[in-house]
Simulated assay, not measured.
Amino acid sequence: MEFEARNSTEEALYQYKVGLGTFTKKMPKLAEHYNAFTQECFKEGVLSQKQKQLIALGISLYSQDEYCIIYHTKGCLDQGCTEEEIFEAIGVTAAFGGGASMSQAVTLVQECIEELNQLKQ
């Protein structure tokens, strides 16, 4: 059965999942260690999972990593971030990353928020 995405955000998340699955089959030990490491990094701690997702979104924007931008925008929403909190994090990122970070934020992040919110309905 072929997956049919309803929007570009959902398609990108699916492509990432498929790619990670393929990588995991080819490099199971490495994938296991990477997944364990990232799970540990994103656990609730002194910083909340919400704060960690906002940080990850900022780093994703700064590094221009579209898959991570989509993934961590979803992570922010999943952790209960408001649009205002996301946009504040974008502002901090743009202070460091300038126009390149801002261009991803005003296009891709806003598109993701809209599409992910539509999926909840």
Rank of each mutant, 00 (worst) to 15 (best):
I69E: 04
Y67V: 15
L61Q: 01
A56C: 11
L54G: 12
T82W: 13
G75Y: 15
I59T: 05
I70K: 03
L57C: 03
I55S: 06
S60R: 06
S63C: 06
C76R: 01
T73M: 09
Q64F: 10
C81D: 10
Y71T: 02
I70N: 08
L54T: 02
L57M: 15
Q79I: 00
Q64D: 01
D65I: 06
A56E: 03
C76P: 14
E66K: 13
Y62F: 12
Q64W: 15
I55R: 10
L61P: 00
H72C: 15
S60Y: 03
D65Q: 04
G75R: 07
G80V: 11
T73Q: 14
G58Y: 07
L61N: 05
I59E: 02
S60D: 13
I69K: 06
C81K: 08
L54C: 05
C76G: 09
I69H: 01
C76D: 12
I69G: 00
G58E: 02
C76V: 00
C76T: 11
Y71K: 10
L54F: 06
E66L: 14
G58V: 06
Y62T: 01
E85P: 01
Y62V: 05
D78P: 00
H72S: 07
I59C: 06
Y67Q: 11
S63Q: 02
Y67L: 08
L54M: 11
G80S: 13
